[in-house]
């Protein structure tokens, strides 16, 4: 009972184990744990149970100062607004010494870029990659929805690679 180690190796089929413990945790705590993961991993926790699949839409980040929004459509619009702002940042970042990493940081409620420009976006550990460029940005939206304790955003650009990424964003944005 006290010892429950080695659970990664051997699956105690049908024996109530640590699962009971993790499932006994309130949503607040699970959201906090999810906020340390990237969107890909957050989505993958959906294999655990209905409850875990439901953790996504249950809470949503305030985004651009707007209150929680109910529908997928609204979130979609919000996210596209985010991408627009993200693209607006590109020229600024472009002028910075290093294109490879441009950390962008935050107190509460705002992003401060080196030149002093402020953006009201609150996120962290957001990794933009091909996988998150789904038609409806669902992966990113799930990520935002599961990140109630976000305090920091780090944008990373891969040298020479970001243009195609931006291009893909633009392609999607063209549909709005």
């Amino acid at each position: 009972m006290v010892k429950a180690s080695g659970n990664a190796g051997m699956a105690p089929a049908r024996v109530p184990g640590p699962a009971c413990r993790i499932n006994a945790l309130p949503n607040d705590i699970l959201h906090r744990a999810l906020s340390h993961m990237d969107a890909l991993q957050v989505v993958q926790t959906g294999v655990l149970s209905r409850r875990w699949r439901g953790l996504g839409p249950a809470t949503r980040r305030q985004f651009h100062g707007m209150a929680d929004t109910g529908t997928a459509r609204e979130r979609d619009v919000l996210f596209k607004a985010f991408v627009n702002r993200f693209l607006m940042l590109l020229p600024i970042l472009n002028n910075m010494e290093s294109l490879v990493t441009a950390p962008v940081l935050v107190g509460t409620g705002g992003i401060q870029v080196d030149n002093g420009a402020e953006y009201s976006i609150i996120l962290t550990n957001l990794k933009l990659g091909e996988w998150c460029l789904e038609e409806n940005f669902y992966g990113l939206i799930v990520f935002l929805g599961n990140s109630p304790t976000l305090v920091e955003l780090t944008l990373k650009f891969i040298q020479g690679g970001y243009q195609s990424t931006a291009g893909r964003f633009l392609g999607k944005l063209g549909e709005i």
């Binding site: 429950a4 659970n7 990664a8 051997m10 699956a11 105690p12 089929a13 049908r14 024996v15 109530p16 184990g17 640590p18 699962a19 009971c20 413990r21 993790i22 744990a33 993961m37 991993q41 993958q44 926790t45 294999v47 655990l48 149970s49």
Partner: peptide
């Protein structure tokens, strides 16, 4: 505990039954 694991590994790590 969840990072970098396959779906089944996540289940096992967290002690979810098959």
């Amino acid at each position: 505990m969840i990072k970098g694991k396959s779906p089944m590994e996540i289940r096992r790590t967290l002690g979810f039954p098959d």
